[in-house]
Design a protein around this nucleic acid. Structure first.
Lengths: 340, 340
DNA sequence: TAGAAATATGCAAACGGTTGCATGAAAGAA
DNA sequence: TTCTTTCATGCAACCGTTTGCATATTTCTA
């Protein structure tokens, strides 16, 4: 059907192995032979068949990216997608292909296990939500290269992972609020149970302690997964005797709810109450007022993960590595300081 | 290294071909033999090597999704991502893998051409922005299965594609606004040059004509790619002698700008001016007021594309097909009608 | 100038499946 | 009981590349 290495060899009058060596530069071939082969490849419109090539090499030249999406919204997570873009870029630059799979169970075998056992990829990147202890152990046992996006539950020191410095993120956010004169800082989260959220709460509490905030008012609120709840939660918080004068939010939608609620009860942002959120969504700078955010460089997150994984694939003894990506404050109107 | 079909065959005392036939169900094998083979496969922890399998079959069992991303924001396009989710689902259900590649040129050969010529995928899905006439012709010449997301520039009837009914979308939006009492409807677009936008403008104009709106005030505004401009554009529009009483926006960020601008100049939405937008972003229902939108079922878009492509891969004479996905209005507060 | 070393290339096996054809055994027909 | 048909399985080639080893030729060394 298509032109093969043998056709080229026959045409030029050399052995197929010689053609192969020219393609791969895997041996010294005389310039003369090389030229003839190259010429024939162009003339005959030859393209290496990667199916055969991968088979012979025992390598797929593909890396798998696992996504833990319960619905299409998960997929649309802007946070995650910038990482995907970074991963795709790095993977491509290194001559690999990116294979994306949702983490669903067919029968006994998860789609991830299939990728691994059936040799569909040379390595995988998986979110911590998919990195169950069982899977981690399985991968390690089979010596299969993988890297986790986010801190895993087990084997923290014996796996490679990349995470965002969530704790430090909220810590600096709280400190920034203090510096700008806010003193009673609440924290509204979408869901307090994730590792994610726990780290953020930790940093928040650390900052409070450092500032000697002994009172321990319960300013941490959980939306129970429903961001709309932030609206009522905010109004409730402000009704309290000891109402907060700043609110840190775990994401932009919550922050938007908070802004709306404050507006409804005629509380001014940032003059009465400061508002701050995690993640620099495109929307955040257009809010009224523009939101100060804890920016997470998700591009770097993906970039690190992909780079690291590829090193590991290419060098089996590449040591496990844990990378923590720093967060960055982007200061806008919403935390400008109180006027009174 | 790993367990192969030959190991199983030896263990059971049959020929490798018999094992292969059991795995593929490609011939009648006695129940007895079948059982023994199955048992051995489980006991020896055998997994078919898809590298070898694909090679023997001359098929990759992968489909390629091309993304035309100039930066990480393109990747984060919520619109597109829901399609990706759908595509991934369909692809997986059909036993294929999804390979994602950004459409970048290395040297002479684009990454797309590489996928095709080096047999890395069995078919591709590509956005109309990547479906250049040159590429379309190349694919058709090589009889390579592909489907376009969006109407292509050439060969409209000799290619398969899926598109959203953008024209009808804005037409119904405008009619809805009329019905609710708005009479002078402006249209603010991010960028008027895309095929996308052109179709939307077409539908908008059609609706105006049908309503006998002869005056032809220039109510179509272009942000020149910068959505922030919508803020000033809105204020300007409202300053005009013949100010509009409704604004249709080409996306949510623009709509948000419009809402803010109206608020700033003390124009009430929806009492004075109705606002409506394309795309049902998660944010839109939380806006103040909640936004009426032209909802585009991007999930179905991807689903259709993937389903169609797979049919074409599995049946070479599967005829080209063009699918147009209907839009749907979601009516919320922002177009409730004028009070005066 | 013979022998050793370096260079360029060929040969053939191997990678792990799949599949057309052949064959032996069992079942059915006459 | 013998011949034909059907069923179950084996044999071996094949898919396109890669690569260790062998070999022929050239270059170097003493």
């Amino acid at each position: 059907m298509a032109v093969t290495i043998k056709d080229i060899a026959k045409q030029v009058g050399v052995a197929p192995s010689t053609v192969s060596r020219v393609i791969n530069g895997s041996a010294v071939i005389s310039q003369e032979t090389k030229d003839k082969i190259m010429k024939a490849m162009v003339e005959m419109d030859y393209h290496p068949n990667s199916l055969a090539r991968n088979f012979a090499n025992g390598s797929t030249y593909a890396i798998g990216l696992v996504i833990d999406a319960s619905d299409d919204n998960t997929f649309s997570n802007a946070f995650f997608n910038r990482s995907v873009y970074a991963i795709e870029t790095v993977v491509q630059e290194n001559g690999y292909n990116l294979l994306i799979t949702n983490d669903r169970d067919d029968d006994k075998r998860s789609s991830v296990e299939k990728l691994v056992f059936e040799k569909k990829v040379d390595g995988i990147i998986l979110p911590s939500s998919s990195a169950t202890p069982k899977l981690i152990r399985l991968l390690k046992k089979n010596n299969f290269p993988f890297i986790i996006l986010g801190e895993p539950e087990i084997e923290k020191n014996e796996t490679s992972w990349v995470d965002v410095n969530n704790a430090l993120g909220s810590e600096t956010a709280v400190k920034h609020l203090y510096q700008n004169g806010y003193q009673k800082i609440a924290f509204i989260l979408e869901n307090r149970t994730t590792v994610f959220a726990k780290n953020r709460v930790e940093g928040y509490e650390k900052a409070l302690e450092e500032k000697g905030c002994g009172e321990k008012e319960d300013y941490i609120k959980d939306c129970g997964g429903k961001v709309e709840n932030a609206f009522e939660i905010t109004k409730e918080l402000l009704r309290q005797a000891n109402a907060p004068d700043a609110i840190l939010c775990s994401n932009n939608v919550i922050a938007y709810q908070v802004l709306c609620a404050l507006k409804e009860i005629n509380v001014s942002t940032p003059n009465d109450v400061g508002v701050m959120t995690f993640d620099n969504y495109p929307f955040s700078e257009y809010m009224d007022p523009p939101l100060s955010v804890v920016d997470v460089d998700t591009f770097r997150l993906g970039e690190q993960a992909a780079t690291n994984l590829i090193k590991k694939i290419q060098n089996a003894d590449y040591e496990n590595q844990q990378t923590i990506i720093a967060t960055k404050l982007i200061i806008r109107e919403s935390t400008k300081g109180k006027t009174k």
